[in-house]
């Protein structure tokens, strides 16, 4: 008895560490200045998957991500931590997707992966903070969902039931649902384990086709050890295009996105007249006295 688990993960710009050079002079976001990272809550989801794999021997954990060629990094990071394999959904036709077009693309890829018992993903990604893709994928696959999961408490393979603790506004609840099911995992769930040194050694040269075609990304002129990829098939990270997953172009990328960005405004705070004070005793006392006098503070 074992579980087939799929983990949805996204490579995101690290919006939490935005430096001064993150905006260009024209006021657009300078993506190159932001490091690309594994979306934090997707790591929480991966941890839940890896724990299930340990408690249910014989289970498999498969990662699925969508992005440009360099997003193969996400699959590698998953392999380093104990995942069994992964797929990179990559095609220009996917570009510009809103959450609905993204969930459509992911759902087609999941259908191609085939049989599964549990799909896990982070609650939301830090670049959009929408928390929409998980439930939308569930809807597209006709699955029930448990969002804001904090811990998977139990999976009963015979009864095909899963029990999980989830966050709700102002509290927690424990819910039980049937398999197959989709869960999104909250940032308050257990953090992901670190990379395993042996697995890093095993998979460090794992690459997708686009990465292999552009060795410069790895600081190499030509692909080192090209023969490795034939000898060790697990080093080839599978890339899928729209065609591979039999996607309908109309439902992908920009054309599959009902939401359109009408305008983007760079942040300029409206300056208002303000008083600038120093931290001196005199200034602070004068301010307190003023606030007391006009009854701002009592």
């Amino acid at each position: 008895m074992s579980l087939r688990i799929i983990v949805l993960a996204k490579q995101v710009p690290d919006t939490r560490n935005v430096g001064k050079d993150a905006m260009t002079a024209e006021g657009t976001v300078n993506r190159a200045a932001l490091p690309a990272i594994f979306n934090p809550e997707d790591l929480n989801a991966l941890e839940q998957a890896l724990r299930l794999k340990e408690s249910h021997p014989g289970s498999t954990v498969t990662l699925l991500t969508m992005g440009p060629g360099r997003a193969a990094e996400i699959i590698r990071e998953g392999l380093y931590r104990g995942a069994d394999g992964g797929y990179l959904l990559t095609d220009r036709a996917f570009a510009g997707a809103d959450t609905l077009a993204t969930s459509y693309a992911l759902a087609t890829a999941i259908k191609k992966i085939g049989a599964y018992d549990i799909i896990l993903g982070g609650r939301q990604a830090i670049d959009g903070d929408t928390a929409q893709v998980g439930p939308q994928v569930a809807e597209k696959l006709g699955l029930p969902q448990i969002t804001y999961t904090e811990e998977i408490l139990k999976v009963d393979e015979e009864a095909r039931r899963i029990t999980a603790k989830r966050h709700i506004d102002g509290g927690v609840e424990t819910v039980e649902g049937p398999l197959p099911i989709l869960l999104t995992v909250n940032g308050s769930a257990a953090p992901c384990r670190p990379r395993n040194a042996k697995l890093v050694m095993k998979y460090k040269r794992a690459m997708g086709a686009q990465e292999k075609a552009a060795p410069a990304c790895h600081g190499e002129k030509t692909l080192a050890y090209p023969e490795l990829y034939e000898q060790r098939p697990y080093l080839n990270i599978q890339e899928w295009s729209v065609k591979d997953v039999e996607g309908d172009l109309q439902q992908c990328g920009l054309s599959g996105s009902p939401t359109k960005v009408k305008a983007v405004q760079n942040i300029v705070f409206q300056a208002k007249e303000s008083k600038t004070l120093t931290g001196s005793d005199q200034d602070v006392e004068a301010l307190i006295v003023e606030l007391l006098a006009n009854h701002t503070i009592g």
């Binding site: 809103d98 959450t99 439930p135 709700i168």
Partner: peptide, 20 residues
């Protein structure tokens, strides 16, 4: 938590856009 669980599911079924 409820709105963010419910909204995406409804928008997906109706193929309507949702902004969080």
């Amino acid at each position: 938590v409820i709105g963010r669980d419910l909204g995406p599911r409804v928008s997906s079924a109706l193929t309507s856009g949702l902004t969080a």
